[in-house]
């Protein structure tokens, strides 16, 4: 279907083409195409367009790419599959449409997965985010034995029941691209579809970053400072929640939630530095969750959260 697309736009030939195709696909199905959230997050789910918008009664359909940072997964650029920074393509549809599985399969076809040729499977995978106080049921989506997406029906977010339930699709873009491009090493992915001199690989774009951030994440991030940042973010989140409260309404749910995101990322960095013990780890996760819950409660008192 994309045979005639220029290589720079082709999902089979370029990484960017894959992203553009998915954006177009979901745009054509009524989604708001957002841009990445401008903060460090561990997954596309953290974007307020998912976490907060999943709460409350309002209809919401959106799709976006979200760079995701998992400091602990850094491998100094030496592992062909693991990255501390990678892209997720996130789709959230609230309420979940009855044909969500079919839509997902159509999107795979759109990026060049021939469903008559490949074995696509929905394999049980219950999703839970302890830091967001969220859980849902769904699957990992397999294509010929490789997990290419996560498919989740959100049941609870920030400790609140989802009513209605949102359907969330998360495409692992690098993996999918490796699959459709037939590449074994993520750094070999063709980013722009160019050939020869004109080719820009994923490694050209990101290898140096993976090396540098691995050093940072594992060895050099200033832990004293990070602890301080965690405390600051936590305190600021609470302060904003306090200052924004107006009885049945809340005026600063989004800025407060930013601080919750910040605390979460700082915690991930500290975790990568290996200086948080098992018991402390639990308590940090709990602290972030408490923030997420409070932000969710505040959101439900806003227009976006459904207050008339």
């Amino acid at each position: 279907m994309n045979a005639h697309a220029p290589v720079s736009m082709s999902p089979e030939k370029s990484f960017q083409g894959l992203i553009l195709t998915l954006q177009r696909f979901w745009a054509e199905r009524g989604c708001v195409i957002l841009q990445p959230y401008d903060m460090e997050v561990g997954a596309g789910t953290f974007h307020p367009a998912t976490t907060l918008r999943a709460l409350g009664p309002r209809t919401w359909n959106a799709a976006y790419v979200q760079p995701s940072r998992r400091p602990k997964d850094g491998r100094y650029g030496e592992n062909p599959n693991r990255l501390q920074h990678y892209y997720q393509f996130q789709v959230i549809l609230k309420p979940s449409p009855p044909n969500l599985q079919e839509l997902y399969l159509e999107s795979l076809a759109a990026i060049g997965v021939d469903l008559a040729l490949h074995d696509v499977r929905f394999v049980e995978d219950d999703w839970e985010s302890p830091t967001l106080g969220a859980w849902g049921l769904g699957w990992e989506c397999w294509c010929d034995g490789m997990e290419v997406s996560q498919f989740t029906y959100f049941q609870q977010v920030a400790g609140f029941e989802c009513a209605p339930v949102a359907g969330e699709l998360t495409y692992g873009l690098e993996r999918l691209a490796m699959y459709v491009q037939g590449v074994e090493n993520v750094y070999d992915l063709n980013f722009n579809g160019g050939e020869g001199e004109a080719k820009v690989s994923y490694g050209d774009v990101f290898l140096q970053a993976e090396q540098e951030y691995s050093r940072h994440n594992f060895e050099h991030a200033d832990t004293e400072m990070l602890f301080r940042h965690f405390r600051d973010a936590e305190a600021e989140c609470r302060a904003l929640l306090e200052k924004g409260g107006r009885g049945e309404r809340h005026l600063m749910a989004l800025p407060a939630y930013d601080q919750c995101i910040k605390a979460s990322h700082v915690f991930n960095l500290l975790d990568a530095r290996g200086i948080i013990s098992v018991t402390e780890r639990q308590s940090y996760i709990l602290r972030v969750r408490e923030l997420a819950k409070a932000c969710g409660a505040a959101w439900l008192k806003t227009d976006g959260g459904g207050v008339a």
């Binding site: 009664p57 309420p95 979940s96 449409p97 009855p98 219950d126 849902g136 049921l137 769904g138 029906y153 049941q155 029941e161 989802c162 009513a163 209605p164 339930v165 359907g167």
Partner: peptide, 23 residues
């Protein structure tokens, strides 16, 4: 063992629960 709600009906938290959406 675990069940869920889905779709427009799930605006009501007492809506039908099934292991995955029942069609």
């Amino acid at each position: 063992p675990k069940s869920m709600r889905w779709g427009a009906a799930s605006r009501d938290t007492g809506s039908l629960r099934w292991v995955r959406p029942l069609h």
